[in-house]
Every structure is written in structure tokens, then in C-alpha cells.
Design a protein around this nucleic acid. Sequence first.
RNA 1: GGUGACGUACCCAAAUGGCUAAGGGAACGGUUUGCAAAACCGUCUUGUGCCGGUUCAAAUCCGGCCGUCACCU
Length: 311
Amino acid sequence: MVSEKNIVILSGPTATGKSSLAIELCKKYKNIEIINADSLLVYREFNIGTAKPNLKQLGEVKHHLIDIVEPSVSFTAADFVSRVNHTIKELNSINLRALIVGGSGFYLKALLYGLWQAPPGNLEIRKKFEPLTNSELYKQLLHLDSKKALQIKQNDRYRLIRALEILELTGQKPSQLKPKLQNNSQFKLWIIDRPDKDLFYHIEKRIDTMLQSGFIEEVISLRKTYPPTIFPLQSIGYKQVCDYLDKKKPKGRKVPDDIYGLKSEIILATRQLVKKQRTWFKSQKKDFCFELDRDLPELEKEFENIYGTSA
RNA sequence: GGUGACGUACCCAAAUGGCUAAGGGAACGGUUUGCAAAACCGUCUUGUGCCGGUUCAAAUCCGGCCGUCACCU
């Protein structure tokens, strides 16, 4: 059965070189296409700051789930899962294999283990909760579903609202939601990483390149079209450029007013992302962990085992 | 060389005589179930440049020294 073929998920911290590696790996096989698993590459017009693969790269190997939504539209983990499942089916039907590449841990977890059987977010209902303070929200939830409330930190406003939203939408207690089963036996989670010294060097180099390629101009142009509140403009790099353009200084830290100050702020935020991603992956069940450069031969061998001719 | 300002933790920064010297950032660790490059939580338990003086009591007042910055010659 075609659909039972293994699919590698190539993940790991940002700037490790996942995308380029994936393209190099796929070029040798001709029948593999890449499915993006990065929460920001799905947005059109956000190109430089997201380190989106360029046209040449996109031409070498076909990519899915890149540039699929407008920047002002919110794209969720559930959207990601259904799109991926759909794409895999489609590829299988024409005898192609999929390779999933990206560092958005939450999306991957949703793909591997499924989300709960719950309705999507509802702006109307969320608006209703807006005036309430965190402790008021917490008290409400404690009253309606104390089990769930005890699992949520009292200041975790986002999750408190989500839990109350589910209650209102379904009448069901969030703590009793049933899992939506996801067949994950075909996925192989591979994490690639590299030593801090290499990774940080790459991060700095990458940010230099972004700034030289017109990153600031990209942000200026995006801000003419979209409100500053949209999610991708809050993301790493974009947020710092916005602050730079608005001359907004961070609290608790002195940063030069110039391009060097901007660069150091983006580096800082990117390193913090790396750390968060590593923390995330630490708790995930992995099939392989590779250190790039050092373990490349082994990685290629494993890749051959899964995507090789006979598979 | 002269004048003035300033010197508080790894960094920024409150507190100008008196309870155990705020707060923030960074860092480190963690949570994560439809916004996730988001959001949230925990840990950073003696550090007021140096020396001396005044006082019951000094980061805080006085003197000197060292250092930084600004301006002047």
C-alpha cells in the first residue's frame, strides 16, 4: 500500500540549514517533494525575514505549503495538519514521496499526535472575554471545569480563554475532550542541530544577508498594506525591524539606534528562538538526532534507507 | 591643566540618612492540544568604585583617591 511508506520529518532549530539540506537530499531522487512545516513560510509576501527558500531552490524541488495564505489570515496548527494530510494523499496518488521540513514544534506535534476534538477559535466569543481580568477568567474556569483550570497557570490568559471558549461553544468540559486520532506510524521525526559556535555564526551571517537583501524595505512595504497587529509582523526579525522603524527601544536594555543595534536585536531574538525550539524537541520522541556536518554521511545513509529505490 | 556630572549585580535602572537595597533585561531551566517565530511559569538566596570622616544609624552627608563622561583652556 502506497500510503504506508515512511515520511521523514526533518526538523530542528532555526538556521541549522534544514531547508538547503532537504533540497540537496531530494535532488538525488526526483520523486520526492517537500512539505513545509514552518509556521511563517505559509504567508505570502513574507520572504526575506522568514528565510524562505528562493525561486531557484523552489525550482529545484517542488515545495508545498509555502505562500498559501494572505498575511492577515490566521493559519493554525489544525489547518497545517489537514493541509499536510491532504498533500500526502495527493502525492501518494501520483506515486510521489513526501519529506516534511520545518521547525514549528507545535505543528509537528499536532501532526504526529493529533489535536483534541474541539472547535476552532471564535472571535466573537473571545471578544466577550476581553474585558475580564486574568483572575476573573481563572475563577470562571475553576467553577466550570476545575480539573482543566488546575492544569493552567493563572496568568496564562490565552489558554484560559481558549478553555472557556470551548465550554461555551460545545458545552463540554475541555478536560474531557477526546483525542482526534492521527496515524503517525509512517512519520519519522529527525532532529538536526549543530554546535552553538557554528549555529550562532550562521545566524549572524544569515541576518547580515537578510539586511543586505532589502529586509527593511520588505517590512516598510508590508506595513503599508497590513496592520501592525497581524501575526507575521510580530515574528522574529519583523518585530525588531518594526521597532527600529518606529524608534521603539526595548525595556531594560540599551541598544544603539542604528542598523547595528537592529542587527543585535534580531540576533538575540533568534538565539532565544533556538533555545525554545531545543527545549521543545527535548521532550519529543525522536527517531534520530543528527549533528549537521559531523553526521551528514550517516544521515544520507538513513535517508537512502527510507527513500531509496526499493522502498 | 580647569570646571561640572556621574560611579548600585553580567547589563540597564529605582531608592538621597533608618524595616531583610525596587523593577526590568540577559542568562539558565520548564510548560505547551485550533494565534506557537505566540503565550505562560520557575531559578538567579548579600551587589552600592576605593580609603577615611560625621552619625545611634550612610548607597544616601563631608574629605581624599581612582575611573567614566561632558564642557572649557
